[in-house]
């Protein structure tokens, strides 16, 4: 562990005489990092909310950091490890805000985008490919795989927002999406429409 990281860890211990001062300094930089990240993800929250949310992110990040300080093994600089907590808080709060204000709705699988509907002017092979894909979405995916694929891949709902909607988590839904994609690729390949040489 580098010396600066060691000082952070030592001074964040409750018994250290500079504990409160160190917590305040870390909170300040985490709040600035959170504020910057909220601006970087602009469009998902409005300006006046930024300061309040950044403070909440720093508050929650500090709590997590203090609770997990013994997990820090010095594989990165302490500050980079700490920024990670603030960024994850931003990610979580931005998703919750989006979900509360714009919950995904109308995610029925038959509401496929027009671009995936075979049209007469398309080449025969393309029409067959899309027809196979549409059929596979309808018949080959499990209900959960279909729900996740339609929401995320076809309707641009974020993983985190959908996780809040379904009471799940990002990793579980990503696994559903991954499995759905592999199944659909396999269906296209089996029907003579491989998307890559690996699928053929």
């Amino acid at each position: 562990m580098d010396s600066a990281s060691r000082r952070w860890v030592d001074q964040l211990r409750p018994a250290h005489p500079r504990h409160e001062e160190t917590v305040a300094k870390l909170h300040d930089v985490l709040q600035r990092a959170a504020l910057h990240e909220l601006h970087r993800r602009r469009g998902q929250l409005s300006g006046p909310e930024f300061d309040d949310v950044a403070q909440q992110c720093a508050d929650d990040a500090i709590m997590n950091i203090l609770a997990k300080i013994d997990d820090f093994r010095g594989l990165s600089r302490f500050t980079t490890w700490a920024y990670k907590f603030a960024i994850f808080e931003v990610s979580s709060k931005v998703a919750r805000h989006a979900w509360q204000h714009h919950p995904p709705s109308d995610l029925e699988w038959d509401k496929l985008p027009d671009t995936l509907v075979p049209k007469p002017e398309m080449e025969v092979e393309r029409r067959e490919q899309l027809a196979t894909l549409t059929q596979a979405i309808a018949t080959e995916l499990t209900p959960r795989q279909r729900e996740v694929f339609v929401a995320i891949a076809l309707n641009d709902v974020s993983l985190d927002v959908l996780a809040l909607q379904l009471g799940s988590n990002r990793n579980a839904l990503y696994k559903n999406l991954f499995d759905a994609r592999r199944k659909l690729r396999a269906c296209l390949a089996a029907a003579g429409h491989p998307l890559s040489e690996e699928d053929a």
Binding site: H36, R77, T79, T80, L159
Partner: peptide, 24 residues
């Protein structure tokens, strides 16, 4: 492939670049 994880990664990278290392 994962936009959510990529956004988190980009945020940590940006924070580490912008705010850098600090001494307590």
């Amino acid at each position: 492939v994962c936009p959510g994880c990529r956004a988190d990664h980009d945020g940590v990278l940006e924070a580490a670049r912008r705010f850098g290392d600090l001494d307590p």
